[in-house]
Design a protein around this nucleic acid. Structure first.
Lengths: 251, 251
DNA sequence: ATGTTGACTTGATTTACAGCAAAAAGGCGC
DNA sequence: GCGCCTTTTTGCTGTAAATCAAGTCAACAT
């Protein structure tokens, strides 16, 4: 959904003192998240403000609606779901975030977070205190520009999602999500065809505005038609062109 | 949908030389768009980079998908629609922008605009060259913060829209739009109850993921139930609580 | 006044997906 | 292995909104 700002090596491990040894400069995700033009010195300045805490377990919340906004987060490993809960308890999954992607921009506007964020599996994140990031952005203009770009990307992808929810049928919505995940795997040099979905059918359906039954039926049909293969959360994309067609099919 | 950054008096007129006499400091919309904390001197620095051109006529495009990204725009008067067109010609209205609101953040990410922007009626905008705005934002930290806030607001409202499209029925979608417009009129000290819709049924339907027939039928039903009164584009909200209920009704 | 055009409304019918229910398949502790 | 619980799948039925098809209405030109 979004690309990332700053993230450290996904092979980073907790050390004996309970914090994480890692740095942006030797993180294999930095190409996804830091401005490419940033020089070594500036990377280190960014690196200094980043906090790396112990991993989240599946189901752990990173923050909740109403929490004071202090930081944005880059996903280092695992996967993360963001969701709104409105007054009457209606839930809406607003995004899935994979390693190298940045979340937390809800909250910038009102100094309070506007959604809930939960780990879908064991995941680790880099926490970037926003005030310090703003200070640095005043000094490093490529960093400021990059921040604008990240937020702009989020806006663009949200608009695409509005189109998906408003205009596509069930097959188109599923195909759109699968291709989005595929592209994001490819960016990390992982296979764009074989993947394990990080989210449940429930989460997929909620995100796409469909019931779990429709998600399940649609996946089954696509399997039967040999467009994909489905085995629980293991998915293989077998016919990208057909998926593309489904994405753009007029209703 | 968004609040604005910088906008000048809506009573501004074209002068004989073909440009517009106006300035941020005497604009009655500046409270909506400029950071409140900005001092007079800084307002003038912002004012200097703003370009005010002659008004757009209904149907005029401000920019189109693929155009090089140079500026963002604050609406000064009238109303503006943004919309995506995907590869197969599916259109999705992504937002309506009223005086005091800022648009154009699509385009930040890729230096190319990612949507189309068209005037729904005679409208005027303040054009703010983005590079210059970035430069100023490096110097005026409240301005940088404000830019982040504006983009954050856009993201939040887009997420709300995802919930609307994904979870609400036709009545809930219509009610949500009407209340949103009402709140935005109220911010400008206009009546929150009586309003003239700036957009056609077609645009409403496209934005909300409904056909024009459903929009029309739903408005008629709400009229019959005395929740609103409808006369073409003239709408009066007669029962805000009921509209609120409809917004949050689970399916 | 009269025809023309485009925007909107209303009615009848169809359909994609929701909702309900029950069975199948994992996952996990013991 | 075996029960327990959750997730997913599959079948059947109902419904909200789409689609198709006329109409109405207002603006505007002839």
């Amino acid at each position: 959904m979004a690309s990332s700002i700053i993230a450290t090596n996904s092979s980073a491990n907790a050390c004996t003192h309970g914090f994480i040894k890692a740095s942006c400069s030797d993180c294999n995700l930095k190409g996804l998240c830091l401005p490419i033009a940033l020089d070594i010195g500036d990377i280190e300045r960014v690196d200094k403000i980043i906090q790396r805490s112990r991993p989240l377990q599946s189901g752990d919340h990173l923050y909740r609606t109403g929490d004071p906004f202090r930081s944005i987060y880059a996903v280092r490993s695992g996967s993360i779901k963001t969701y709104l809960v409105d007054e009457n308890g209606i839930e809406q999954v607003t995004g899935f975030f994979l390693p190298g992607e940045v979340l937390g921009f809800d909250g910038v506007a009102n100094h309070k977070h506007a959604c809930n964020v939960v780990a879908l599996e064991t995941s680790s994140v880099c926490e970037i205190p926003f005030e310090k990031l703003e200070e640095l952005s005043l000094q490093i203009h490529t960093l400021q520009h990059h921040m604008f770009q990240l937020m702009g990307q989020q806006i663009e992808s949200d608009h695409q999602m509005m189109l998906t929810l408003s205009k596509k049928n069930a097959e188109g919505r599923i195909a759109t999500l699968l291709l989005s995940l595929s592209k994001r795997y490819a960016r990390r040099n992982l296979s764009p065809n074989a993947m394990r979905l990080p989210m449940s059918r429930m989460d997929m359906g909620n995100f796409l505005g469909l019931t779990i039954e429709t998600v399940s039926r649609t996946l089954s049909r696509l399997h039967k038609e040999d467009v994909i293969s489905v085995d629980g959360r293991e998915i293989v994309l077998k016919n990208h062109e057909r998926l593309d067609e489904l994405c753009h099919l007029l209703q």
